[in-house]
């Protein structure tokens, strides 16, 4: 949930965000389905805009304007949040970080999409077939303008593992510390 990224423009909430019943789970099944779908879209859009990689089911999550509309003085309940995150996971847009189901990785870009992005960056910027470190790719001076700059470490590790599995990188230094990962992106 924490992110260093400051978007250049504030997120524009959809009109339904200003609709008070939106923050209460609907009892009627068809309405609830529609409501949950709308929430999934909203969460994805919000996370994309703010480059949010993680959401945690703890008290601080309700500090996010996403789940609390200060103007309406409404917020999403803990149970409803759980329902929404479960729907997000079901839509392949998120993944529980552990079996305790308290945190999710939000995949506003899927792992394969992230892989493609990294490979494309390497090809376009002359980093293909050269040794790069995890730190360099994630926080280096050459990537500050990239979408994956300051990517969540765990998500980054997953993307690298995905690339390795697809044989699109040559792993030089496997490491649990993402900054010390060493690999070559095959261009």
């Amino acid at each position: 949930m924490s992110t260093n990224y400051a978007p250049p423009v504030p997120f524009e909430f959809p009109p339904i965000y200003s609709f008070p019943p939106f923050f209460t789970l609907q009892p009627h099944a068809p309405s609830r389905d529609k409501q949950v779908t709308a929430w999934v879209d909203l969460i994805r859009a919000y996370c994309t805009h703010h480059r949010v990689y993680r959401l945690s089911l703890n008290a601080s999550i309700l500090d996010l304007p996403l789940f609390r509309n200060a103007a309406l003085n409404r917020s999403v309940s803990r149970d409803m949040l759980h329902t929404l995150l479960t729907a997000l996971v079901k839509a392949d847009l998120a993944e529980w970080t552990s079996k305790s189901k308290t945190h999710v990785f939000v995949y506003w870009k899927s792992l394969s999409e992230w892989s493609d992005t990294l490979v494309a960056w390497a090809k376009d910027n002359g980093f293909a077939n050269t040794v790069v470190t995890g730190y360099e790719v994630r926080l280096g001076d050459y990537v500050t303008d990239q979408e994956f700059y300051a990517m969540d470490e765990a998500v980054f590790a997953k993307v690298v593992a995905h690339l390795d599995h697809q044989r699109r990188i040559v792993m030089i230094n496997p490491s649990s510390n993402v900054d010390e990962l060493g690999f070559k992106i095959i261009g």
Partner: peptide
């Protein structure tokens, strides 16, 4: 699977130090 060569490792060590 393509293997990492010795000079790849050397370059990596240098880059790690740079990081």
């Amino acid at each position: 699977k393509p293997k990492a060569s010795a000079h790849d490792k050397a370059v990596f060590e240098l880059k790690k130090q740079r990081d």
